[in-house]
Simulated scan of single mutants.
Amino acid sequence: MIKTVVRALGAAALAVLSTLHTMPTAQAAAVAAPSYTLPLANAVNAIPVAAEDRAGYDRKQAFGDWIDADRDGCNTRAEVLLAEAIAPPTVTGRCTLTGGLWYSWYDDTEVTKTDIDHMVPLAEAWDSGASQWTRQRRVEYANYLGDDRHLVAVSQRSNRQKSDQDVSTWIVPDNPSQRCRYLADQVAIKLAWDLTVDAAEQAAMRRIAAECPDTDITVNPVP
């Protein structure tokens, strides 16, 4: 994966990664590689391919619940709802939300009740490398607010249709621009978190990326 990033960024990335290699482990762990931009098709090819394995997966045990990372009374779910509302909900007490309106771009509809979707589902992340992470890292993944592509307020219908499927078996309905956006966001998250794809997933990604020749993506590596 490091070689892939270096090829995408050139000498600047090599300098940063060399610095990370020589600094103490705890300090290096807190520093992310710089963001980089590349064509979607190239990004798809940059994701390592590996067989998936769901052995031992238990969602709650592996990834925990929504947390209140900044201790402002609103957990991650509420933070996403507040950030993405097109008509804001009323907030009372310790971040109890009522009312509100959201645009679910998965199915091009406005909704008053939403689910919060992990762009790369938790089970898919587990299959693709997260099973090897610490539990703390998995809880961070489940609650990550550092990239607005990571968690998305969508209709309950579309979220439940998608469930834990990857792009080889589910993608947003036939709207070319939204299909490109969905794939681009999935790929950006996989690269940011050093996750893998299996052979069927890579084939589907390549097929869809071919429909999106003018799509570039920016990857924000997570420290």
Rank of each mutant, 00 (worst) to 15 (best):
L17Y: 15
T92F: 11
R94A: 15
R206I: 09
T76G: 14
A125G: 15
P213W: 05
D194W: 08
I217F: 03
E140P: 01
I116Y: 08
A78G: 14
E84K: 09
L82A: 04
R94N: 15
V44L: 01
W193K: 07
A62P: 13
L40N: 06
A62K: 13
I67H: 01
T215F: 07
A184S: 09
S131L: 06
R160T: 06
V91Y: 12
A203V: 06
I116C: 00
E52R: 14
A50K: 14
T37F: 07
Q61S: 15
E52G: 12
A51H: 08
L40W: 06
I189W: 03
V31F: 06
L183N: 07
Y141F: 15
A28K: 00
A46M: 09
A43S: 04
R138Q: 03
V16L: 08
V111W: 10
P34C: 14
V91R: 15
S177M: 04
C212F: 08
A51Q: 11
C180N: 10
T98C: 03
W105Q: 07
T4F: 05
A12S: 04
C95V: 00
C95D: 01
P88W: 04
M205W: 05
D68V: 00
V80Y: 12
N45L: 11
E110H: 10
V111M: 03
A87K: 04
E201G: 01
A62H: 05
D68S: 00
A203H: 03
T92I: 08
Y103R: 12
C180D: 12
L195M: 12
I2W: 03
A209V: 00
S163N: 09
L9W: 09
P34W: 11
G99K: 11
Q178D: 15
A32S: 14
C180I: 10
A210Y: 02
D58C: 00
G56D: 12
K113T: 12
S128A: 10
W105E: 02
A51E: 06
Y106V: 07
A130R: 06
V80K: 04
M205P: 04
L14Q: 14
A153Y: 13
I171R: 13
V172Q: 14
W66A: 07
I116K: 10
A199V: 15
P121E: 07
S35G: 05
T98A: 13
E79M: 05
L17D: 12
V44D: 01
D174K: 07
Y141N: 08
L195V: 01
A30N: 08
T96L: 10
T25F: 01
T37P: 03
H118F: 09
N143H: 14
D127V: 04
R181H: 15
A55R: 12
M205K: 09
A13N: 02
D72S: 02
S168R: 04
Q165G: 00
A46D: 04
R149H: 11
K113M: 05
W66C: 12
V6W: 02
A69L: 09
D72R: 01
K162V: 09
K60I: 13
P34R: 13
W170A: 04
A12H: 00
A192T: 09
S104I: 09
A130D: 03
P173L: 06
P173G: 11
P173H: 11
R207K: 10
A29M: 11
R71K: 15
A210K: 05
L101S: 14
R135G: 00
Q27C: 01
V222L: 02
V139Y: 10
V172E: 15
L145S: 02
H150A: 14
L14N: 08
G99A: 09
E52F: 10
H150R: 13
